[in-house]
Amino acid sequence: MGPFDWLPIAPLEPLHLDWLNGIELAVLRLDRIDPLISGNKWFKLTEHLRQAEQAGARGIISLGGAYSNHLHALAAAGERFGFATVGLLRGHPQDTPTVLDLKAFGMHLHWLGYAGYRARHGADFWLPWREQYPQLYPVPEGGGGLPGALGCAVLVEQVRGQLSKLGWDAYDAWWLAAGTGTTLAGLALAEAGAHPVYGAMAVPDDHGVAQNVGAIVAGGYELLEASRGGFAKADAALLDFMQTTERATGLPLEPLYTGKALLALKQQIEAGRFSPGTRLIFVHTGGLQGRRGFTG
């Protein structure tokens, strides 16, 4: 496997919105690192790929849904860098735009149904798959766990290296969506308490975000509810906010993660959480390919 030394620099851009009320906001555009291997997914994969290479694996087997950003980036990376990929998918066979891409990228798919997918956290879940694909390295859903977090830790260095082009000498905090919490955990690890990391949870509490993050890092972060009724739930207010924001700034958003996170930030600013002059880094975690199948 390999090479996996590709480490793109995500551009840091100022974002001007009328509701910021004196707060300065910059966006780390992970959505702009690559047309296909986009967002935080590549960063979460890098350490997993290094471990796979060290283990002598010929490819990766991982999990996700029919619109999975993680599987989409993994399959695209497999095609580009020449390693095998297998995807274990939630639900029953369907040809979403994402699934069609996975097939085009050469990923071999297995549909687990819903009960089969819920069993993914079981102690023996991977046993039959390791037997069927002994040459492949298993990666958790979404590229999670400590390796995924360590891969995201480099984003702190990337931001610090670009502050001068904003005219900033420092920043005060991070703000991003949390789906598994892996990227948030990586930022908190790298910050080591220097700056707080705020995670707007795009999924309900029962998805285990707090447990995932707590298993990786002891502190330096705060999780806030932002799911707006559940994973992949989008109401009229969210969709209107996204449309208004995109029209005003040109920043593309999607309703599962980035849209919810930015709207949650607006609500927190309006509630007085941050004082004027605060400098915030908003992480655009990508996921724009998933917009193709979103119906509201």
Rank of each mutant, 00 (worst) to 15 (best):
L49T: 10
A66G: 03
A73R: 06
Q132K: 11
A226K: 00
T98I: 02
R32C: 11
L102P: 00
G91Y: 12
W42C: 07
A234R: 01
Y221N: 04
G293H: 09
D240G: 08
P138R: 13
M1W: 01
A261S: 03
Y117K: 02
W175A: 07
D172L: 03
G142W: 03
D95M: 05
L49H: 03
V86C: 14
H284M: 01
G106Y: 11
F4V: 12
P93L: 05
L187P: 06
R130M: 10
G286R: 00
T96E: 05
L7G: 12
G106F: 14
V197M: 12
T244L: 12
R247T: 09
A73F: 04
Y171H: 03
H92V: 05
T46Q: 15
Y198K: 11
H48K: 12
A236T: 08
K44D: 02
F83L: 11
K165Q: 14
A190F: 12
R130H: 07
S164E: 12
G145S: 06
G296H: 10
A271I: 06
F241A: 04
R130E: 11
M1H: 08
D205R: 13
T182K: 05
E79H: 13
A84I: 14
A76E: 00
T285N: 00
A215L: 12
G193M: 09
Q51V: 14
W111C: 06
E13T: 06
S227N: 10
G230A: 13
A177N: 02
R273P: 13
P134T: 14
G116R: 01
Q211D: 15
L163Q: 00
Q54P: 10
P8N: 11
Q54F: 10
L256M: 05
P97D: 09
L28G: 04
F282W: 00
A237N: 03
Q135L: 14
L189A: 07
R118L: 10
D172F: 07
G167E: 02
T183I: 02
G181N: 08
P138W: 07
Y117I: 02
L36Q: 05
G144C: 13
P276N: 15
Q289D: 12
H110P: 13
S275C: 14
L63C: 08
T96W: 02
L239S: 01
V156R: 12
H92M: 03
I60Q: 08
A52T: 15
T182F: 08
L238F: 01
L251A: 02
A52I: 10
G286W: 00
D124K: 09
D18R: 10
I37V: 13
R292F: 07
L189N: 13
P8T: 10
G286I: 02
F294Q: 05
Y137F: 13
D172N: 07
T46G: 15
